[in-house]
Design a protein around this nucleic acid. Sequence first.
DNA 1: TTTAGATTTGAACGGCCGTTCTAATTTAAG
DNA 2: CTTAAATTAGAACGGCCGTTCAAATCTAAA
Lengths: 198, 198
Amino acid sequence: MNKRRYDSEKTKVVIMDHAVSLFSQKGYNQTSVGDISTASGYSKGHIYYHFENKEKLFVLLSQQTMQDWHNKWLQKECIYSTATEKLYGMAMHVLYHYQTPLLRSGQELASNPKSSPESVQQLYNLAVVPMGAYRTILQEGIDKGEFVHGNIEEWTVLLGTWLGGLCQLTNTQELKALEPLFNQAITIFLKEIKKGGI
Amino acid sequence: MNKRRYDSEKTKVVIMDHAVSLFSQKGYNQTSVGDISTASGYSKGHIYYHFENKEKLFVLLSQQTMQDWHNKWLQKECIYSTATEKLYGMAMHVLYHYQTPLLRSGQELASNPKSSPESVQQLYNLAVVPMGAYRTILQEGIDKGEFVHGNIEEWTVLLGTWLGGLCQLTNTQELKALEPLFNQAITIFLKEIKKGGI
DNA sequence: TTTAGATTTGAACGGCCGTTCTAATTTAAG
DNA sequence: CTTAAATTAGAACGGCCGTTCAAATCTAAA
């Protein structure tokens, strides 16, 4: 019920899809509203009918992308039984689903003094999503006795920065070729935190 | 001898200093030639007397900054006697001297389709400098018998991405507070590569 | 002092960008 | 069919940006 009049929602999605693609490819500043207009097939003015401005549109897309990533992880998480398996699974999830180029262009927006402080804050807040997911796995590992007791906040940051750093390689290399690297990082990390030594 | 007429070289350096500062703070696209002109106190047109265009200026600054970083490391390297010490020393060198914001704004330039392919290539080439420094230490550790024989290229990338990822934290946190984190990363990494187990 | 060349300025241009506004068109309900 | 509201287009504006250029000023040597 409450059937939509017009199919405005669909065109909104079309615009958003093209915008995500463009922001990812060209970055925030180098993607103009005109680019989004041309790609989506709707007029420039029409984009301002659906979205307040370019900045808000980008923040919305970033939030949605991050939420998507997290939801996909929650769906996938249950297929792993141990925290150790989850760490390896998470590494692959990051490699294949973390939208590095889009999130990186958020740094362009954040570093622009003209950007609204709210938007900058909202973008910084996105970083807590993956960190929270990592922390959950580490906590579970400790609770189940797989991992030793340690500084869980420090572990979370170390794991997060490592995966984040590895993601930068996705610019220049095939994802498939990066799998061993991501796995090796987890293996090394596990040697530090796993119970029962090496 | 060959004493310079005029002090044009000095004004060139002044412009470059202000440009580095601005590019670091605001990113590539958000720093205009006008900004550099205002900050340095020289007219916009004059900047084009010293530099071909904004893009070439940025590439030059990036290269110079990276070379500076490497030279400082070579000077400092000799105070460490073992490869293990060098790794910890390198972590601090990266934390305190790697110009993350400047290098990151190179990604803005690289992701712009209008940028000249030469410039993009030159920026990508900068990444080999730190990687080369890491590889040298790891190779030395193997040669001296401190580290086990392993896949040195893989180690280099893993170490490089981890330090690179950690550097992103310098946006939001005090450098001093990050020291334990950088050291802990090295400690974990060493557990993987050091001879004689944990 | 003259002069040729180095340095510096400031105005100007063409172009693109984010945003606004008005008007036209479409939709669904009465 | 009428009508009011939702949707879309397209023109327009003010502003900034990278770059160019001609002219002015300065320097050092002759």
